[in-house]
Design a protein around this nucleic acid. Structure first.
Lengths: 245, 245
DNA sequence: CGCTCCGCTGTGGTCTGACCACATCTGCTA
DNA sequence: TAGCAGATGTGGTCAGACCACAGCGGAGCG
């Protein structure tokens, strides 16, 4: 048994859970510069003995870090094995939003409203950007969406990638990750809504036109127009799949 | 050993980790309505046998759910013990943003920019809201901030609560949780920046005035003015603690 | 009869030790 | 020299054992 029992005081509210100590140790290493993306964490057994906690507690902390998109783990040996510091907030944000929607913590309406705000900001920034940002990824996705053979769900997936591409083009990683999360949160809702669309080909053509219109407004450096168009595009779509039917 | 080895195919990329099965089981329960906020999850030992995984794997999944703000665990017996479904996205969002900033995945500049966008949206909505929202919490925080005896860090804490109170007043839970996260992500940065403020009393007085000005604009239902004021307030402060000194 | 107290019970929290699969490295062998 | 087989060490998982804690209920006391 470890000898960390010194000081029964300071109990306060937190029962000083062991795995939290591991989490804080890693976070401190990050803040102090001892750990940086690409670095490998010590092995689970080493962390266990270093911090005086059981290996299972170390694993619980690593699981949290993995869920937060901070580490990637791989078994085996060699440079690619072990727990490696990464930074992929998108997946973590998506999981968080998805679960919160499932637990009724995030109303779908609030997610849509937040999307309206963030996407309007994104396209506004893109339109104002000087020099203009590269919209190649967005263009390619729009071209891919012109394929009439796409199933509705496939079209929707490309649609989501298009919106995400705009966020990426804006260069704001926080907004990009958040929008990825928002999208994941309402993905199920959007897929369910497909059933409520009476005339899919018509809706699809309208969406295509709206997408092109947004990009055109960005290229014209007309920020207000771009904001208006993206706003109408998003709110219109959700109005269709929620009210219509 | 459990007999879940059926079908070695479908290996693909995910090694089908045991804890992920628990996570998906809970998520499906949420989506199917079998689980709702306030419900108690089965005990860890029961989940373990039901899903055919070890108890440690169950615990790793519960740890992720806890980090995501979905469950609250308590030892002991009785109605308050066990893993209970909750929905507190704020803490999870804060942890996520804080860790991502620590891992250099979220540049501080992007967080500030996102704050500008979201807070402008919040105050704009508040100004346009009909009937007007209750700003009592924000008022009380402003009054508390009028105390000259407050230490700078204490003032900053109240400041953060004020901004959060505005988000809460707007009623958008997604924005509220996101703003709580953004704030946590740059908290360390903001605290460090205190050292770079030459004349704290002057800065403090200016912040007080700007806060009052934002609330006044909201009460006047002047959305554009509120947006401008909150924008200048935030960008001005971060300009001061980053460039100055 | 009512109240208090103490042990019983079941929960999460933690630790330990043991396997397994895997990726790499080492060194022997052909 | 080329190639393969074992050694090595990693994460992934499981099983079992404690502990502290919170509630419940019966025994004992007033």
């Amino acid at each position: 048994m470890t000898i960390e029992q010194a000081g029964t005081a300071e109990a306060s509210v937190a029962p000083a859970r062991a795995w939290r100590a591991v989490l804080e140790h890693v976070e401190r290493g990050l803040l102090d510069g001892d750990l940086a993306p690409g670095d490998r964490l010590p092995g689970e057994r080493a962390l266990s003995t270093d911090l005086g906690v059981g290996r299972s507690s170390v694993r619980e902390a690593l699981r949290v870090l993995e869920a937060m998109g901070l580490v990637r783990t791989a078994a085996g040996s060699g440079p690619n094995a072990g727990a490696i510091i990464i930074s992929t907030p998108g997946g973590a944000m998506s999981a968080l939003m998805r679960l919160q929607v499932a637990a009724r913590g995030f109303p779908v309406a609030d997610i849509v409203r937040t999307r309206l705000t963030l996407e309007a900001s994104v396209v506004g920034d893109l339109a104002d950007a000087s020099p203009p940002r590269d919209l190649g990824d967005a263009d390619r996705l729009l071209d891919a969406m012109d394929d009439d053979a796409l199933a509705p769900a496939e079209f929707l997936a490309l649609d989501a990638q298009f919106h995400l591409a705009l966020a990426e083009a804006s260069g704001n990683q926080v907004i990009t990750a958040t929008m990825a999360g928002l999208r994941s949160g309402i993905e199920g809702y959007a897929l369910d809504g497909l059933d409520r669309i009476a005339d899919w080909p018509a809706t699809r053509d309208r969406l295509r036109g709206e997408h092109r219109g947004v990009v055109a407004a960005i290229r014209q450096a007309d920020a207000p127009l771009a904001r208006t168009r993206i706003h109408d595009h998003i709110s219109g779509y959700y109005a269709e799949i929620s009210l219509d039917g």
